Amino acid sequence: MVYKIRDKETGKVYEVTIDEETNEITVYDVKTGKPVKTVNMTIEELKEAGYEVEPV
């Protein structure tokens, strides 16, 4: 599923895909559409880390 996340401190917005089964999150560069990095976190962990998470 695709989400937009926003860093509450910097205001930067990222587009991510989240595999609900493995909790693998792939972060994409919004301008190029290319993957930047992959992390292993849940949506709740993202929120605790200071991100706003919205489904696209």
Rank of each mutant, 00 (worst) to 15 (best):
M1G: 11
M1V: 13
M1T: 12
M1E: 07
M1F: 11
M1N: 11
V2E: 06
V2D: 13
V2I: 14
V2P: 09
V2Y: 15
Y3W: 09
Y3C: 12
Y3R: 09
Y3G: 05
Y3D: 02
K4E: 07
K4F: 14
K4M: 14
K4P: 02
K4R: 15
K4D: 01
K4Q: 12
I5T: 01
I5S: 00
I5L: 05
I5P: 00
I5M: 05
I5Q: 00
I5Y: 05
R6V: 13
R6M: 10
R6G: 01
R6N: 03
R6L: 09
D7L: 03
D7A: 03
D7W: 03
D7F: 06
D7G: 01
D7I: 03
D7M: 03
K8F: 05
K8R: 10
K8P: 12
K8E: 02
K8Y: 06
E9H: 13
E9F: 13
E9K: 15
E9W: 10
E9T: 14
E9G: 08
E9Q: 12
E9I: 14
T10W: 01
T10E: 00
T10G: 03
T10Q: 01
T10I: 00
G11S: 03
G11L: 03
G11W: 02
G11Y: 02
G11Q: 03
K12G: 05
K12F: 10
K12L: 13
K12H: 10
K12N: 11
V13L: 07
V13N: 03
V13Q: 06
V13W: 14
V13G: 01
V13K: 03
V13H: 05
V13E: 12
Y14E: 00
Y14F: 10
Y14D: 00
Y14V: 02
Y14K: 00
E15M: 15
E15H: 15
E15R: 09
E15T: 15
E15V: 15
V16Y: 03
V16C: 13
V16R: 00
V16M: 13
V16Q: 00
T17V: 11
T17L: 11
T17E: 06
T17F: 10
T17K: 08
T17A: 06
T17S: 07
T17W: 11
T17P: 00
T17R: 13
I18P: 00
I18R: 05
I18D: 00
D19I: 06
D19R: 06
D19K: 07
D19C: 09
D19Q: 06
D19M: 05
D19V: 06
E20R: 11
E20F: 14
E20D: 08
E20H: 11
E20N: 10
E20K: 12
E20Q: 13
E20I: 13
E21D: 11
E21T: 12
E21H: 12
E21L: 12
E21I: 12
E21N: 13
E21A: 13
T22H: 12
T22F: 06
T22L: 11
T22K: 15
T22W: 06
T22R: 14
N23R: 09
N23F: 07
N23G: 13
E24L: 15
E24S: 14
E24N: 10
E24G: 05
E24Q: 14
E24F: 12
E24W: 14
E24M: 15
E24D: 07
I25Y: 02
I25G: 02
I25C: 06
I25D: 00
I25M: 12
I25P: 00
T26D: 01
T26R: 07
T26W: 06
T26C: 05
T26V: 10
V27C: 15
V27N: 01
V27G: 04
V27E: 03
Y28S: 05
Y28P: 01
Y28N: 04
Y28H: 08
Y28C: 07
Y28R: 11
D29Q: 02
D29C: 06
D29Y: 02
D29K: 01
V30C: 14
V30H: 13
V30N: 09
V30W: 14
V30I: 13
V30S: 13
K31I: 15
K31L: 15
K31Y: 14
K31V: 15
K31P: 10
K31C: 15
K31E: 15
K31T: 13
T32V: 02
T32A: 04
T32Q: 03
T32W: 04
T32R: 02
T32C: 06
G33N: 07
G33R: 07
G33Y: 03
G33W: 06
G33F: 04
G33V: 01
K34Y: 11
K34P: 01
K34D: 09
K34F: 11
K34E: 10
K34W: 11
K34S: 08
K34H: 11
P35K: 13
P35G: 04
P35C: 10
P35R: 11
P35Q: 08
P35S: 07
P35L: 13
P35I: 14
P35V: 15
P35M: 11
V36A: 04
V36P: 02
V36H: 05
V36Q: 05
V36R: 03
V36E: 05
V36N: 03
V36G: 04
K37W: 15
K37M: 14
K37T: 11
K37V: 14
K37I: 13
K37R: 12
T38F: 09
T38S: 08
T38G: 05
T38E: 04
T38P: 02
T38A: 05
V39A: 06
V39S: 04
V39E: 04
V39D: 04
V39Q: 04
V39H: 05
V39N: 03
V39L: 15
N40P: 06
N40T: 12
N40D: 05
N40W: 13
N40R: 14
N40Q: 12
N40K: 14
N40Y: 15
N40H: 14
M41H: 04
M41D: 01
M41S: 06
M41L: 08
M41G: 10
T42S: 11
T42A: 03
T42N: 06
T42K: 05
T42L: 03
T42V: 01
T42W: 00
T42P: 02
I43L: 13
I43W: 08
I43G: 01
I43D: 00
I43K: 04
I43T: 03
I43S: 02
I43C: 10
E44T: 09
E44N: 12
E44M: 10
E44K: 10
E45C: 07
E45H: 07
E45Q: 13
E45P: 00
E45I: 06
E45T: 06
E45V: 05
L46C: 05
L46D: 00
L46K: 00
K47T: 09
K47D: 04
K47P: 02
K47L: 14
K47E: 12
K47R: 12
K47Q: 11
K47S: 09
E48Q: 13
E48L: 13
E48W: 08
E48R: 12
E48D: 11
E48T: 10
A49I: 09
A49E: 07
A49S: 11
A49T: 08
A49Q: 10
A49R: 10
A49W: 11
G50L: 04
G50T: 03
G50H: 03
G50R: 05
G50N: 05
Y51K: 01
Y51A: 02
Y51C: 08
Y51V: 02
E52W: 06
E52T: 07
E52K: 03
E52F: 06
E52H: 07
E52Q: 06
E52C: 04
E52R: 03
V53K: 02
V53S: 02
V53I: 12
V53Q: 02
V53R: 02
V53E: 02
V53P: 04
E54P: 03
E54N: 06
E54H: 07
E54L: 14
P55E: 11
P55A: 12
P55S: 12
P55H: 08
P55W: 09
P55T: 09
P55L: 13
P55M: 12
P55Q: 10
V56D: 07
V56H: 09
V56G: 09
V56E: 07
V56N: 08
V56W: 08
V56A: 10
V56M: 13
